[in-house]
């Protein structure tokens, strides 16, 4: 039973179609990443899911409620961090968390939350004086202060340095550990690969692929590849005999050595034939696909990291 389910969401702004057809589900305790290039319609999608924006078509169910019909009904149980959301510059960390705690029926303890987010030393610092990473951690604190069952986190680590980004990732893992289901919006492959149980790749307002990171990066049969290096050039007739092996679909020789694609059994078959010809590669490495390869293959534009 999913805690969150969106079906065939659609939203146009004037003649611009921001979201064409997006469906996704979030199971309890999972992290689902909505991954896509800038302008793919990710933020509009989650805003419709939260009932902050009226969808032109499609349905949403969040914990059995319909945020499109009654946006207010889900506020207690759905925590949100939106990319565009800010705080007044002069509010301090402690004031912000206490203020937001006061909006909820059964809020988390502000002091405990700040401790969890590593902001205890910054309680009296004003929002405008916080670093980018600290502001993001405060944003997460505010999204979690109502003890939500689901948190939607939009472009959480954009603009953070790699160190701060890893800190935020650890934090999200510990939040999931506490039982919160998380919908994560990101354009960072690494973030999705590291955190998500499932990834929904969105491009130009449509879902172009979804699955676990492993499923998405798994190659189809006949699409397995490895590279070999040799001390000396291989004789042409040996190369031809390798190409004729039934397990091999393609073999090319280039600057980086010899690249073979084929069935999973291509590697032992090729090495066996080389051994019979008394040739041993100096180096072999298999080429696994990263989520980034999948992403670039599926989406129209290469994202700016």
């Amino acid at each position: 039973m999913p805690v969150l389910e969106a079906r065939h969401l659609r939203k146009a702004y004037g003649s611009t179609l921001a979201v064409d057809d997006v469906s996704l589900t979030l199971e309890e305790g999972q992290i689902v990443a909505v991954l896509g290039p800038n302008g793919a319609g990710k933020t509009t999608t989650v805003e419709m899911i939260a009932g902050l924006r009226q969808a032109d078509a499609g349905t949403v169910r969040v914990l059995g409620l319909d945020p499109q019909a009654d946006p207010h009904a889900v506020r207690e149980q759905l925590g949100m961090q939106l990319q565009a959301a800010r705080l007044p510059g002069r509010i301090t960390v402690a004031e912000a968390v206490q203020l937001y705690a006061s909006f909820y029926t059964d809020p988390a303890d502000p002091a405990e939350l700040l401790e969890l987010l590593g902001l205890t030393g910054k309680v009296d610092t004003k929002f405008k004086d916080l670093s980018g990473g600290q502001q993001q951690r405060l944003s997460i604190a505010l999204a979690l202060v109502g003890r939500p069952k689901i948190a939607i986190l939009d472009e959480l680590t954009t603009g953070l340095d790699p160190h701060a980004r890893r800190e935020v990732w650890q934090l999200i893992e510990s939040v999931r550990g506490s039982g919160v289901s998380i919908l994560l919006v990101t354009h960072f492959m690494e973030e999705a690969e590291r955190l998500a149980d499932r990834v929904v790749i969105v491009d130009e307002g449509r879902v172009v692929a979804q699955g676990s990171p492993t499923e998405l990066t798994a190659r189809a049969e006949g699409d397995y590849a490895f590279q070999m290096q040799f001390a000396e050039q291989l004789p042409a007739e040996l190369v031809e005999s390798l190409r004729r092996l039934p397990e091999v679909t393609d073999l090319t020789i280039g600057d980086h050595g010899c690249t073979v694609t084929g069935l999973p059994m291509a590697l032992p078959a090729v090495v066996g034939r080389l051994g019979a010809a008394d040739r041993v590669p100096t180096d072999i490495h298999t080429m696994t696909r990263s989520l980034e390869d999948v992403f670039v293959q599926l989406t129209s534009e290469v994202p700016v990291p």
Binding site: H72, R75, L82
Partner: peptide
């Protein structure tokens, strides 16, 4: 303009 209200809109505040 700054998004302060955007953040409030995600809470039960009316």
């Amino acid at each position: 303009e700054q998004g302060v209200l955007t953040r409030l809109s995600t809470t039960p505040m009316r």
